[in-house]
Design a binder for these strands. Structure first.
Length: 249
DNA sequence: GCGACAG
DNA sequence: ATCTTGTCGC
């Protein structure tokens, strides 16, 4: 009778219920319809980002030996000085495992809560753009964690990943590493064009001394060109200050 | 069986 | 993400 159902595995992890993954894919598809991948704010079209005064970064710091506990951090810096004007670190319990392609379902709820806390505490400090650890449209289904957080908060977001997510034919192969080697100055970049013909992001030499590029992709409400330029302008080292400062909290 | 796998 | 020390170079 129902005996077969009782024997189904309930263990979390990569062997997670196919039904849940399908539901998550559907949710990504629905939210993706609301995505805006162009500039929506006037400062984004200004040569020096005139009008931009606050940039934010979010990240989850994981605790060793416990994959359900983490510290959700939100930091806000002044722009262009990059001085810390707000920081919040909150211990959280995570209810979803990490599955490649579904990072948002693990991290986004805590990040949305962090934005809500800032809204209630001092909305005048709300950042005008958020840097997110991970990818935006450079993603299996074109809807990474940066897009997801952008839609749920309404804020412009930029995905900044430390490794190339190999989707749509993009590969960290000899050819790719060769292109990266040719990047000379901090700020030099090349576009990442998938087999589909879509430009999914850019590999950016983010600081003068860094060798390995960072991978920039649009999250929400900003163009790739503006995102690349802004990330570079926020980098003292390889990782942009809005997310790097979190490691000092 | 093998490679790939943001955080 | 994390496992993991020292070492070389600026």
């Amino acid at each position: 009778m129902e005996a077969a159902e009782e024997t189904e595995s309930r263990a979390p992890g990569p062997a997670m219920d196919e039904e849940i993954l399908q539901a998550w894919e559907r949710e990504q598809g629905i939210l993706k319809d609301r995505l805006i991948t162009d500039n929506t704010e006037t400062w984004q079209d200004s040569p020096q980002f005139r009008g931009l005064e606050r940039v934010g970064g979010v990240d989850l710091s994981y605790v060793k030996e416990d994959d359900t506990t983490a510290c959700a951090s939100l930091i806000v810096l002044s722009y262009p000085d990059l001085e810390v004007i707000y920081e919040d670190c909150h211990m959280v319990t995570l209810d979803a495992p990490y599955i490649a392609g579904f990072l948002a379902f693990r991290e986004v709820p805590s990040l949305v809560e962090a934005v809500k806390r800032l809204q209630e505490k001092d909305s005048s400090l709300m950042p005008q753009v958020l840097f997110v650890d991970g990818n935006g449209v450079l993603h299996h289904r074109g809807f990474g964690v940066a897009c997801h957080l952008g839609i749920l908060t309404g804020l412009p977001t930029i995905g900044v990943a430390k490794n190339l997510l190999q989707v749509d034919g993009l590969e960290n192969n000899e050819s790719h590493r060769g292109q990266a080697k040719e990047l000379q100055m901090g700020g030099d970049f090349f576009y990442l064009k998938g087999t589909s013909g879509n430009v999914l992001g850019a590999a950016l030499k983010s600081s003068q001394k860094s060798v390995k590029p960072v991978y920039i992709s649009v999250g929400h409400k900003i163009s790739l060109e503006a995102a690349v330029k802004l990330v570079h302008s926020c980098c003292k080292y390889r990782v942009p200050e809005p997310t790097r400062q979190i490691y000092y909290i």
